[in-house]
Simulated assay, not measured.
Amino acid sequence: MIIGIPKEIKTLENRVSMTPAAVETLVLQGHEVLVEAGAGVGSGLTDEEYTAAGAKLVSAADAWGAEMVIKVKEPLPSEFQYLRKDLLLFTYLHLAAAEDLTHALLKAGTTGIAYETVESPDHTLPLLTPMSEVAGRMATQVGAHYLEKTQGGRGILLGGVPGVYPAEVLVIGGGVVGTNAARMAMGMGARVTILDRSHQRLQYLDDVFQGRITTMMSTEPNIRQMVQRADLVIGAVLLPGAKAPKLITRDMLSLMIPGSVIVDVAVDQGGCVETIKATTHDDPVYEVDGVVHYGVANMPGAVPRTSTFALVNQTAPYAMRLAAKGVDALKDDPGLLLGLNTYDGTLTCPAVGEALGIDSLTPEAALGLGKYDTP
């Protein structure tokens, strides 16, 4: 198969979808790999390393002309021209918050496989987990930074000092993002509360953190109560493939302490804060009702060396299966099949269909793997 690795063009996105080592493995398996010149520079990976691995350096158009294109972030409007029916696109898509991209993929008939909806046999999300770990840890660092007075925050040191009360950190969502955010906040000395709707998950977190954090059920009254005390709120809610629910509403901002900070990691899926909007690394924050909002939609892009290697560790084995068998690889792996979001002009992720009001089929039905009804 001919595989294309384009350079990411999202603002200050420095990750790359394949490392030279992964490229070398693909080449040794008999595939041709086309890497856009400069694609790895932001992650400290040189063109020379890719050519030594057996890749051919090409233009963006040539990389996109491959049979399978592997990316990190979703295609931007300037890249829609490259979408076509005979293209297999393997990347983060987050279609529930990207209606224009969804329609572009459907119009082109592109086969879109989204990292974020691929599942393991235990129903975890293996291709989302590494970036969730990075984003969760970054959320606490970012929040601590914007709590500084010079950045518009309250002027609070997250961990306080002896004799001075530390910051209150509220984490909404106890999954991978929330757990990593809480671990960082606790390590920095903050007082941490995690809200989650699963009692079983809260029991697990209480055991993992040995009672050093507070756990509460994620209910509207509890959220409303806790945002009034929080210096830093981290949104860490995920519904695979679907839009995030708006758990912090506009009216709750008036209850929050002026100069407090919200970091909404769920912004890729529309955000769990009503007032959040996607921002970029070069213009990351804005203020609403005295509360600092951080909504960068590609947080791990700020630490690309770590993020690229963490991501490729997980995506490369799936990419190799797709390179070997194309769409037929989905028939052998029910978890990879769940990654299919668009196919031959049809939306194949019901959660996205529900979010955008678009008719959809299950992946099984779209590929004709049995008699399935539309959702």
Rank of each mutant, 00 (worst) to 15 (best):
A324D: 12
V58W: 04
T346E: 15
R137D: 03
T124L: 14
K246M: 11
R137A: 14
T111R: 06
G301T: 09
M1Y: 02
P126R: 10
E119D: 00
I358P: 02
A135H: 08
L195W: 02
A135I: 10
A236E: 10
S360H: 07
T117E: 06
P166C: 06
V291I: 15
G211Q: 09
L28S: 08
I194S: 08
M131C: 02
K56A: 12
G65Y: 03
M1A: 12
L101H: 01
Y115Q: 03
A181T: 03
I156N: 00
H94E: 10
E168C: 00
G173T: 05
P258D: 10
I2P: 00
T249S: 09
R212T: 12
E99M: 04
G159I: 11
L253V: 05
R154L: 15
C349E: 14
D332V: 01
I194G: 08
M188C: 00
A242M: 12
G295L: 14
A114R: 09
G4M: 11
V33L: 08
T306Q: 13
S254W: 06
A181E: 08
M68A: 01
M216F: 01
N180K: 12
T117N: 05
V327L: 08
Q210S: 14
E148D: 10
L336N: 05
P245T: 06
L369I: 09
G38S: 05
A230R: 03
V291A: 02
N14D: 09
G353H: 08
Y82V: 01
E74R: 02
T102E: 13
L147F: 06
T110H: 09
D251I: 04
L95D: 06
T193K: 12
G173M: 07
G290D: 12
A53R: 05
P130K: 08
G335P: 11
D62I: 03
L125G: 02
